[in-house]
């Protein structure tokens, strides 16, 4: 049996800043190969992991979880051992000053984003956030030493800091979307081949954080799945966030109700869960799911998609929190879907 917390921790420790997903290729392949028949890296940087049901001409289910994470990119190396940088994916500038980061150069080095002490700030300066291009990373190295290790264009990620909280909760960098990657991998590992109704293509896809489409679409173009389930994190509920666009942590996975995802498939997932005795939460994403599904639906001549989410709090920070029971609930749902023959029918 896979230990969920351990697997998420291992996935989080594989650096996968948007655009640098290939960096962890060997590590990731070694980690997940035992659970699949075939693992390969597609042209666009997406890892495709296949588990066959063993029957000819079986339908194909694509289970997509983006593997990339938000981060930064080195834009220049400056006198004094400072680095300027730009974003890879949507960064929250409020959390940047004094954050600890790793720079993934020829070796992994540590840095801290500079913060101007309050004493030195001009009147009113504390009220506005510095722009990204006004921020620098202090590495402690001299410029000459730094140039030997770091090049312009190298990736930067927040400090690797997975930690256990009380109960089922864990926090750390890149829970978005390693938690959902774990759910997909757990489902593939645990599902019994004889019970599978389809060939399962798990895509740990690239570049979602930068383009909201990235590598999942190009991978799908080759896979040509009959249906697809996209799994990604969603906002956890807290004061000030509307109920309909959030889900409660610890109360299971959530499915998206949207004009752009497939209602029939979504309803089938709700039915499968209820039939198995557990409930799914729902979120409403009227016109755009904010996930790979919005683009994946339009791949080739069209792919019916549903979105299954895991609630997460502190999104796009270095301390994203998830509840592993939600990850396990999502994995359970994926196993039911993979074993359901009727999910591929035109009518049910």
């Amino acid at each position: 049996m896979i230990n969920t917390k351990e697997l998420i921790g291992q996935l989080c420790n594989i650096m996968s800043v948007t655009g640098y997903e290939h960096r962890g290729a060997q590590e990731l392949t070694e980690l997940i190969s035992p659970y699949f028949d075939h693992v390969y890296e597609a042209v666009g940087g997406t890892y495709v992991a296949v588990k066959y049901c063993g029957r000819d001409a079986a339908p194909r289910l694509m289970l997509d979880a983006h593997f990339d994470e938000i981060g930064m990119i080195v834009t220049d190396i400056l006198p004094g051992g400072y680095l300027s940088f730009s974003h890879m994916g949507g960064l929250d500038r409020r959390i940047m000053p004094a954050s600890e980061v790793y720079i993934y150069g020829r070796e992994k080095i540590y840095g801290v984003i500079c913060s101007k002490p309050p004493h030195l700030q001009k009147p009113g300066e504390s009220k506005k956030l510095p722009a990204l291009d006004e921020m620098l990373i202090d590495t402690g190295y001299s410029e000459d030493e730094l140039r030997k290790i770091v090049s312009i264009g190298d990736g930067i990620g927040f400090y690797e800091s997975t930690a256990e909280l009380l109960g089922n909760r864990i926090c750390g960098r890149s829970m978005d979307n390693k938690a959902c990657c774990a759910a997909a991998i757990i489902a593939a590992a645990n599902v019994e081949r004889e019970k599978m109704a389809c060939d399962l293509y798990v895509t740990l896809s690239s570049r979602e954080e930068e383009s909201l489409a990235g590598g999942c679409v190009t991978a799908a173009y080759d896979i040509r799945p009959d249906i697809a389930i996209v799994t990604d994190v969603t906002f956890s509920r807290f004061p000030g966030v509307d109920d309909y666009e959030s889900a409660k942590m610890g109360e299971g996975a959530s499915v998206s109700l949207s004009a752009v995802t497939d209602r029939k498939l979504t309803n089938r997932l709700i039915y499968l869960a209820e039939n198995a005795g557990f409930k799914l939460q729902t979120t409403v994403d009227a016109e755009n799911t904010g996930t790979n599904a919005t683009a994946l639906t339009l791949c080739g001549d069209g792919i019916p998609c549903a979105v299954v989410s895991v609630p997460l709090s502190c999104m796009h920070t270095y301390n994203e929190i998830i509840d592993t029971s939600d990850v396990e609930a999502a994995a359970k749902l994926f196993m039911l879907a993979v074993c359901d023959e009727d999910i591929f029918r035109e009518e049910y």
Partner: peptide
């Protein structure tokens, strides 16, 4: 429109589609 939630008074809240 798409229904997002129903409040205690029985009013239906929604988001626009299109």
């Amino acid at each position: 429109f798409i229904v997002t939630t129903i409040d205690d008074k029985g009013f239906v809240h929604f988001a626009p589609v299109g």
